[in-house]
């Protein structure tokens, strides 16, 4: 009896606060550990970009170099490799892919979500099936087809395989599914055609989903090395990772400081874009039907 009485005695306010503090500290320790683990390579890149060659391979790691060598590294990176050209190529390829992906996937997703037509379940299962196919699987037939068409070594050849994104169709379909039918019906009664319903009525409410997908798409294709490596051999068309690969071999090969500076330049646009769009991105991920 006595022991049970001591167990059920309510904890003091101090004990409650202590317990909360400890659990908070634990959670944050785990999160900080994960963040450090993921950010460390990035920090290593940034510090290497401002270190003179001699300091990069020193046994002791220093966040800030004894001798600031940033200007020289960035200058040699920019002068030996056409980095701005690579950035432009990346912009063209990623922008082109994203625009066509949205133009194709949004009407498809709307049809799958809101229109009734025979064969819709089959089409949707095909979309789901498409999600399971990795890009490497059809790369050989695509390469041969592009070679036959004579469009290897063009922007188009880098973009075309990604124009139809089943992931985008799936994501937007889940999002549109929750869009109220009555608003679409009201629009039909008001004389809005189906295409205009998509672009004027539904899409303006889908910005979070579009932002989330855009980030996924741009990150994936900005960082993609595999496909550009297959279809492009002209350095003038190289996307940032492909360009870096070319120059890591030849001119900049031994200059790790300049290489890190180049890597910093080509990752910067993505990081900045993400920081700007962060709020939309997170809202989009939590709002889409994938829960």
């Amino acid at each position: 009896m006595r022991t049970s009485a001591t167990i059920t005695r309510p904890p003091t306010p101090v004990a409650i606060r202590m317990r909360r503090l400890v659990s908070l500290a634990l959670v944050h320790a785990v999160l900080i550990g994960g963040a450090v683990f993921m950010l460390l390579p990035f920090v290593f890149m940034l510090t290497s970009a401002i270190k003179p060659p001699g300091e990069i391979f020193e046994a002791t790691f220093r966040l800030w170099p004894r001798q600031f060598y940033g200007w020289q590294n960035f200058e040699s990176a920019l002068s030996t490799a056409p980095l701005l050209r690579f950035l432009l190529n990346g912009l063209i390829v990623c922008g082109g892919i994203l625009v066509v992906q949205l133009l194709v996937a949004i009407p498809c997703a709307y049809a799958l979500a809101k229109l009734k037509f025979p064969g819709r379940p089959i089409l949707f299962s095909l979309v789901l099936l498409g999600l399971c196919i990795p890009v490497q699987a059809p790369s050989l037939p695509l390469y041969i087809a592009f070679a036959e068409l004579g469009i290897l070594n063009t922007y188009l050849s880098m973009m075309m395989p990604f124009f139809l994104s089943v992931f985008a169709i799936f994501l937007f379909r889940q999002f549109f599914k929750s869009y109220p039918d009555e608003i679409i019906q009201a629009a039909r009664l008001d004389g809005v055609g189906e295409f205009e319903i998509v672009w004027r009525i539904v899409v303006p409410s889908a910005w979070p989903a579009i932002a989330a997908f855009s980030i996924f798409s741009v990150v994936a294709h900005w960082n993609d090395l595999y496909w550009p490596l297959i279809v492009v051999s002209d350095t003038k068309l190289a996307t940032p990772p492909l360009g870096m690969m070319y120059f890591a071999d030849s001119e900049l090969g031994s200059n790790y400081g300049a290489l890190a500076a180049g890597a910093t330049i080509i990752t910067a646009p993505l990081v900045i874009a993400f920081l700007i769009a962060r709020r939309h991105f997170i809202a989009g991920i939590t709002m889409t039907g994938i829960k």
């Binding site: 608003i183 019906q185 009201a186 039909r188 009664l189 008001d190 009525i201 409410s205």
Partner: peptide
């Protein structure tokens, strides 16, 4: 529907959420 020249008012109002009141009525 729109060729029948009838108007409908829905239970949940079905207003276009991204448009102003003026644009909703003008659409």
């Amino acid at each position: 529907p729109h060729e029948r020249r009838i108007a409908m008012v829905f239970q949940n109002y079905a207003l276009y959420p991204h448009m102003s009141v003026f644009d909703n009525i003008a659409l």
